[in-house]
Simulated assay, not measured.
Amino acid sequence: MTQTLFPDLIVNGEAVPHTAIANEAQNHDAPAGKPGIAWRKAAHAMVVRTLLLQEARHRGLTASPQDLAPGRTETEEEALIRGLLEAQLTVEAPTEAELRAEYDRDPARFRSPPLWEVSHILIECDPRHAEERATAKQRAKEIAAQAHASPKDFARLAKESSDCASGAQGGRLGQMRPGDAVPEFERVLRTMSEDEVTPDPVLSRHGWHVIRLDALAEGAVLPFEAARTGIADAMEKLRWSVAARAFVAELMKRADIEGLPPMAA
């Protein structure tokens, strides 16, 4: 993918560098062989970011970066966007009746955290480097195919191939709960069944993983009183998201945008 594939992107007279779109494209999925889809998604994301920053500066807002996690602090641009949305958006808290209705719709959705017994094989790489990422993925795919062809050999494959220290224990990571693994890893765990091995390697910040779910203990259904806070948080976040999308849509409606490629259907 080269810079000439798409025209220059200009938002209210402000040019968005191709390098910024290319960096953003790394955060968006696309089918193999179709990098233009990731570029389009990234271009739309950069338009939204640019519009929000322009609006924040137009209103004279100042950045007050907050700590997000140990060693992770907001950038000034992130703080400006957060400040703008906090100043602009207001959502009503759900009523007790709405909370109860959401719970009663399907109480089985509200459970205590699951417990996973997990093994994996890690093929280490820096996912930011395309060539290194591709080479590691090919190796991980070969190992995944071997694990599916002979499931009983998973521990041996881990000992022989894994770049994780757990390889010495046959890839066993032991028991894990939500939050114990990086988000990319956990998202896949939540979709797996007992004794399942991922058909394709899973990419995380550490490299490619071939994952086996050795055992699964589903959490128990929570009573309404225990689930209430979580339901309220989820409903408020949804309402905030809807309001944010409407706000962005209004900014885009008023904006002068050149060179924005259409999104694929």
Rank of each mutant, 00 (worst) to 15 (best):
Q138V: 13
V118F: 06
G71V: 08
Q66L: 12
C164L: 11
M46H: 05
R172M: 08
G174S: 06
D256E: 15
A181R: 04
L9R: 03
F6C: 03
R40L: 08
R187Q: 14
V47F: 08
H44A: 14
R40C: 15
L222N: 03
A234I: 08
L84Y: 07
R190K: 12
L189M: 04
A243C: 05
P31S: 06
T19H: 14
E102M: 07
A45F: 06
S161H: 15
E194F: 02
G71M: 07
A25I: 01
R239C: 02
I81R: 03
A15I: 12
S150R: 13
S64I: 09
D29G: 08
R177M: 13
A158T: 04
T135E: 15
G259M: 05
G13N: 09
I81S: 02
F185N: 07
G36W: 14
A217Y: 10
A43G: 11
L189H: 00
L173S: 07
S112M: 08
G259K: 05
C125K: 02
G167C: 08
R205W: 06
R139D: 10
T95W: 04
P35V: 05
R82Y: 10
P65V: 10
P262I: 01
F6V: 04
A234Y: 07
E250F: 00
I211E: 02
T19Q: 15
R254L: 12
H129G: 00
S64K: 13
L5A: 14
E131W: 06
I121Y: 03
M235N: 01
R187Y: 02
F154I: 01
V182H: 05
G179E: 05
V118W: 06
R49A: 10
T73S: 14
H18Q: 10
A69L: 12
H18V: 10
S193W: 00
A136M: 10
P262R: 00
V188N: 04
T90I: 09
L189R: 01
S162N: 07
A87Q: 14
E194Y: 05
L52M: 12
L68F: 06
S150F: 07
A246C: 05
E196N: 11
P113N: 11
V47H: 00
A158Q: 03
A227Y: 03
D153F: 03
R205S: 12
V188M: 10
L203W: 03
T135V: 14
A69N: 13
P107V: 07
Q169E: 14
H28F: 15
E194P: 02
A265I: 10
R205C: 00
A42H: 01
A43P: 01
M192I: 02
G170M: 11
P107I: 10
A264Q: 11
Q138T: 15
V248T: 13
G36R: 10
L52W: 06
A147H: 02
L52A: 05
V197P: 09
A165N: 06
E250N: 09
A226P: 00
V182Y: 00
A22Q: 14
A134C: 01
I123T: 13
I37V: 14
G179F: 04
P151W: 08
T191H: 08
P113S: 14
F110A: 04
A168D: 14
A144R: 01
I81H: 01
I10N: 03
A234V: 09
K152C: 03
D195K: 15
R205T: 13
A45M: 05
Y103R: 03
F110R: 02
L52P: 00
D256H: 12
R128T: 13
F154L: 03
F247D: 04
F224W: 08
L122G: 01
A168W: 09
R72L: 13
V248R: 06
A25E: 12
